[in-house]
Every structure is written in C-alpha cells, then in structure tokens.
C-alpha cells in the first residue's frame, strides 16, 4: 500500500491535541516539559472540561505554560501557584483548577505554599515536574538534586554532608491528611507516558468528585542542565533518578499505599 493512501484524514490515529496551541514550545529539544503539558491537555480534552479548567503557571522554564496550554491560565509569583490555585478554586468551586510547577518552584521557594495547600486539602491538582535541578536559571542545585549529582553550584556532585539531603516532597505531603491522592510518574518512554496520562486523568476525576488535593509528580529530564543529549538524559534518568524517586502510587483514595 502506498504511503499516500495511508496518510488520509480518516486514518488519523494520533495528532497533537487542539488544547495545545500552535506556538512553538520554548523548551530545549527533548525536554519533558512539553510531554507533560500535552498529557495534561489531552486529559482535559478527553474529559471535555476545557471551558471549566483554569491552570496556574509557575516561575521556571514553564513560566510561559499559558502560551502553550489552550485553557484559561494565570501565572503566579515564584512558588505561589498553590496559593493562587486555592483562591481560584474557592472562588469557583466547580472549576478544574491545577498548578504546573517545577521542583525549584514547588520544593524550594514554594515549600510553604505547597505544604499548606496540601494540608488544607484544596480541591486542586498539582502537577509537579521534577528534573532535579533549577533548569531556567542555569542548572543550579535544587532541593531535589540527587546525592552525588553534579549541578552548576555543586560541580563535584551534591555532597550531602555539606549540602544536605534531597527532599522527597511527594512522600512528605502524602502523609498529610488533607491530601487525597499522590502518585509519581515519568514521561521519557511510551510506556511511562501512557501510565502518566492515566494518573493525570485520575487526578482530574478526583477534582470532578471534589475529593480534595491530587498530587502528580512527573520525574523528568533537564538535558541542558545535566549537560547531556536528550536520549542520554533519559537513560540517566532511568538509571539514577528512578531508584531514588520510585515510580508508582503513594496514596490512593486517601490511603497510603506505599511508605
């Protein structure tokens, strides 16, 4: 069969969702942010709730998420997305409100906002993209940087005796009674993408049922900051990040399923 007989509108099985704008993403080639954006928007499209969805963009590489996600968006001051999402969700309790945040935003400068929004059990979704580094500002060490992992401010690797230990924000907030569901996913292979999408779907279904706060961590790459090619970064992620940041559900329907 000729290729042009296959490439016909009736045979289309996958194309970028209309809820991603046609703007070229500002991310480095191979950066997981783009995939995480698209999965979030695919879920919103499949649920048919785009008119009722309000996202909050962070400070970090994804500061311009509002240019790429074709739903109503706000942009928060650094780390303050959960506070802003709280206000939006309390003003419009029937909306699907989510934050999209990096690890510097969520686990460093925004630690207080994250913990308190989680502890209050706000009816929001938090999408937490953890690439173990401050991507936007040049690859500095983040609270999430692995022991021994080099960064521009720990060029010989993170020495935990001097620089402290990485913070597993996701496990930490899972212990708060206000938090309804917590999961850790990844988007570097097709298998992980499919699982991550299911997890994001579950999170927004929780919002629909007003179950409270759903937290989805996505372990991702920062190939520029890690100074690797995208495929090397994805392999490095698989070999190093996932043994520390283990994938899977941590809290389901208000019950811890993993310690």
């Amino acid at each position: 069969m000729d290729i042009k007989d296959i490439i016909k509108p009736e045979n289309l099985v996958y194309t970028k969702t209309k809820l991603m704008t046609d703007n070229a993403l500002s991310y480095c080639p191979g950066c997981g942010h783009g995939t995480a954006h698209r999965l979030t928007m695919e879920v919103i499209e499949e649920m048919g709730v785009e008119a009722d969805t309000i996202g909050v963009a962070p400070v970090g590489c994804s500061v311009l998420a509002y240019d790429f996600m074709n739903v109503d968006m706000q942009q928060a001051a650094h780390g303050r997305a959960p506070a802003l999402a709280t206000a939006i969700s309390r003003t419009w309790p029937d909306k699907y409100v989510f934050t999209y945040q990096g690890d510097g935003d969520l686990a460093a400068i925004g630690t207080a906002e994250t913990i308190h929004a989680c502890n209050r059990g706000e009816n929001i979704v938090i999408i937490f993209v953890n690439n173990g580094i401050y991507g936007m500002t040049g690859g500095q060490m983040a609270p999430t940087t692995l022991p021994g992992m080099p960064s521009s401010t720990s060029p010989y690797g993170r020495d935990t005796a001097k620089m402290g230990f990485p913070l597993k924000m996701t496990e930490l907030i899972a212990n708060l009674p206000g938090v309804y569901s917590v999961t850790r996913q990844a988007v570097h292979t097709p298998k992980h993408v499919r699982k991550a999408k299911k997890a994001i779907r579950q999170a927004f279904e929780n919002t629909r049922l007003k179950r409270g706060l759903s937290f989805v961590e996505i372990v991702s790459n920062c190939n520029s900051g890690w100074k690797m090619t995208p495929n090397q970064a994805n392999e490095w992620l698989e070999e190093n990040m996932l043994s520390f940041y283990e994938l899977g559900d941590i809290k389901v329907e208000g019950q811890l399923v993993k310690k």
Binding site: N11, L12, Y14, M20, L25, G30, C31, V187, T189, P190
Partner: peptide, 21 residues
Amino acid sequence: GCSNCAIVCPDGVISVYKVKM
C-alpha cells in the same frame, strides 16, 4: 502506526495514520 513516537515527542510534532488491510 503504534503511536509510540508521537506520544513521547516533547513537541507533539508527529501525527500518526493507520489502516487495516
């Protein structure tokens, strides 16, 4: 036409077509 390539493409630039013969 399995779509693996398209779903991991960070920039969402791949469209996939499939036919059953």
